[in-house]
């Protein structure tokens, strides 16, 4: 199998304790954890026995983390969904897709690395898996264009979906994009048409399609891959018709009201489940997927595998008609 540098998993997440990015609202937790680390160093030097104090503070910081994450506001969830340490496409693939074989290109213009896809197996079942890749350092973020696909990215997605359909492979998509790329070349090559056709292709498939909103589900750039039989969503992911900042700058006339916009648009997983926009919320480890990526990745792999299992053996025509009926009834 060819090895693409962008698809090899980084060797662990080095020095997570010291390199961890804390979000603004996590400051009290960060302060406590810093205090614990400081006490530990003191204790290591053997000067004092402060085990008790360390344990007490650790318990307090854990409780604070749990409490904070149980009550995240939609705007805080937006920060978590965009967290730089959150697992990305390549991490999920490394975690729960066996024998991944990436496929490239739209056959007309180029290979857009904002969307990656290929064959693989999930818990033994062969699938076509694809999704947005944001990258995790400056170089790879540029290469993957921060997960913002251009028309050729969606046209690659269309090609792969049709390929999967012909050979009877279920399609799994992992959605994580701020939105489709806004640029001259994207408009020139018909970004809107590419998204419309990709959505259309999702709806035509006679194989099951299971989508998971794993980070940001940004508008048309997301729906092009998520018009699926089953839509899963991570507990702290967001899925919205426009970014909270974009909505705020239009309706409130200032991006400073993004928190209000995030609240008003109901972009969080539990609220979207209630509205029927998504089908299942996948719980994240305490403190978010970025704190325990391995556990989060495994949980998603299991949820996807479950959902594929439920759709296995259903006739192709029924799969397609059920998917259509679901979107026709949306909001009723």
């Amino acid at each position: 199998m060819p090895v693409i540098p962008s698809l090899t998993r980084p060797t662990g997440r080095l020095n997570r304790a010291t390199m961890q990015h804390y979000l603004d609202f996590e400051k009290p937790i960060a302060d406590l954890q810093a205090r614990v680390a400081e006490l530990r160093t003191t204790a290591d030097s053997g000067s004092l026995n402060i085990d008790g104090e360390v344990k007490r503070l650790e318990a307090k910081s854990e409780k604070m983390l749990r409490d904070t994450y149980e009550r995240l506001t939609p705007w805080q969830k937006t920060q978590v969904a965009r967290h730089p340490d959150r697992p990305h496409f390549k991490d999920y693939v490394a975690g729960f897709v066996e024998d991944f074989m990436p496929l490239a290109g739209d056959r007309g213009f180029s290979d857009d690395l904002a969307i990656i896809g290929g064959f693989g197996r999930i818990h033994g079942r062969r699938v076509l898996v694809m999704g947005h890749e944001k990258g995790d350092n400056t170089e790879s973020r540029l290469r993957h264009n921060f997960g913002m696909a251009k028309p050729e990215g969606y046209r690659k997605a269309i090609r792969l979906m049709k390929l999967a359909d012909r050979f009877g492979l279920p399609v799994v998509t992992l959605v994580d994009t701020p939105g489709a790329f806004p640029g001259i070349q994207a408009e020139e090559r018909a970004q809107a048409e590419a998204i419309a056709r990709s959505t259309e292709t999702c709806l035509q498939l006679k194989v099951p399609i299971v989508a998971a909103i794993v980070g940001e589900g940004g508008s048309g750039g997301a729906i092009a891959l998520s018009s699926a039989n089953t839509v899963l969503m991570f507990e702290h992911a967001i899925y919205s018709v426009i970014s909270p900042e974009g909505c705020a700058s239009i309706l409130w006339r200032t991006a400073d009201k993004a928190a209000d916009a995030a609240e008003a648009m109901r972009i969080s997983a539990p609220e979207l489940k209630k509205l029927g926009v998504i089908d299942r919320v996948v719980a994240e480890p305490v403190g978010g997927a970025h704190r325990e990526p391995d556990a989060a990745i495994a949980a998603l792999g299991k949820a996807i595998s479950d959902e594929l299992g439920k759709l296995a053996g259903v006739s192709g025509e029924k799969i397609r008609l059920k998917r259509r009926a679901k979107f026709l009834d949306m909001g009723k």
Partner: peptide, 12 residues
């Protein structure tokens, strides 16, 4: 919100 986004596949 999300329900308006869902009109895209619905109308398709």
């Amino acid at each position: 919100g999300g329900l308006s986004l869902m009109q895209m596949p619905k109308m398709t």
